[in-house]
Design a protein around this nucleic acid. Structure first.
Lengths: 226, 226
DNA sequence: AGGCTGCTTTGTGTATGCAAAAGCAAAGCC
DNA sequence: GGCTTTGCTTTTGCATACACAAAGCAGCCT
């Protein structure tokens, strides 16, 4: 189980991957409006590449749901309505809740110790109010829980879906006080884990994620994004 | 929410899609051994096409996790160890359990009525012992539940992951008595839904899926697949 | 005048060519 | 004799070229 395959140490970045990441960032950041047509030749020119890697990037984005390909009718940025974003957050919340429940029952003492260490490290970050650092920590925290489920497939799915929402989460974190509250919620989750109460940890994780979603919705409505 | 779905109404089949489906079938059926190298030129020759659509097909399969692409090192059929398949089934079981819980609390009377109708229709299929028909019904049954969550994103995710395991499920269904038991388990789930007890429905759904997984594991071990 | 039809244009789908990187193997060196 | 290095082969990654389908437009017919 959990064969850790993260080959994030991969060699030189492939052109198609660079284009994919660039487009993903722009879509998530709202620079590319929903429904906007993505012309392959145009993008190829913009990235100084040919259509081939652009096509691959677009297909991968389609697999991730960020764009929609209509056969012979071009690619458009997927619609990201507030409803859809809330749906996504609810889904993530449920998956995270599921993961933490399984993780509570299955994690090894070593894993628990690492998680505690990780959680402790976030205190300093919150004090500094370093959003970027907290974002990085947050990712590590949640991924540690995924892996602690000892179900590598589930962990992969959770990471994939987490990544899809990452851009939105970053926006949400910058709401005032959200860092403090986020950490406090983590604290509550950690306590439930320590008590070995997976159901409680699960409910707290769900609440944690839904709080984040609510913060994000406020952010979106305030900024008229999406 | 649940914006109407899905243009599954594909127009004329694209060559790359045909290749993707063909390869997906072969991989799921075990005709292509795990770890086997998939040479682009070779496949292109086999399908009487060029490398371009083959490449696209392989990328899509990679996105679905059926193959693994190692940059500049070729594409291989993803390893499907029994452990990994069990991980996949557990994940699906948890997601299905989550879906049925949400669905129980959110489904409209109309949706509930449709689901009951659907379930009732399976009795005749089981009597005939028609595996193919039951497979089709089963898919419809579970998808009805996904949609009843009124979370279109979650429904899409569930369908996608369900599709990934579809081939394995078909194999599992052909275990003797499995049709009967499957329907009986559906019956129990339906009852919990009727009572509005989402938690109970959830637990029963999880048990249902894990039973299927166990049946599959026996099948795999018996046939020395994967 | 309005709708239909055929053409044009735009852009995707597919084919092919080229170059660079990874793997392999053999030969040379210590 | 073992290890390293270098060149060769294989195969991918990217570029370019071509074909065809779909949307837009204009002219014609009704």
């Amino acid at each position: 189980m959990t064969d850790e395959s993260d080959d994030t140490t991969e060699d030189r970045e492939l052109l198609s991957d660079r284009i994919r990441n660039a487009l993903a960032d722009e879509i998530a950041a709202g620079k590319l409006e929903a429904g906007a047509a993505l012309d392959e030749q145009q993008l190829a020119d913009r990235f100084g590449a040919s259509r081939t890697p652009v096509r691959e990037a677009l297909r991968q984005l389609a697999a991730n749901g960020l764009v929609e390909v209509r056969a012979r009718r071009g690619v458009v940025v997927a619609r990201m309505t507030p409803e859809r974003i809330m749906d996504m957050f609810e889904t993530v919340a449920e998956i995270e809740a599921m993961c933490v429940r399984l993780a509570t029952y299955r994690m090894t003492p070593l894993e628990r110790s690492h998680l505690i260490e990780l959680h402790d490290s976030s205190e300093a970050i919150v004090k500094k109010g370093d959003f970027d650092a907290y974002d990085t920590f947050n990712r590590a925290f949640h991924e540690a829980i995924y892996h602690a489920t000892h179900n590598s497939f589930l962990a992969e799915q959770a990471i994939a879906i987490h990544n899809r929402l990452m851009a939105f989460r970053r926006a949400q974190l910058q709401q005032e006080q959200r860092l403090d509250r986020s950490r406090a919620e983590h604290e509550a989750i950690m306590q439930a884990i320590a008590e070995g109460d997976g159901e409680l940890a699960s409910r707290r994780m769900r609440a944690h994620m839904l709080n984040a979603a609510t913060a994000l919705r406020r952010f979106i409505e305030a900024n008229k994004l999406a």
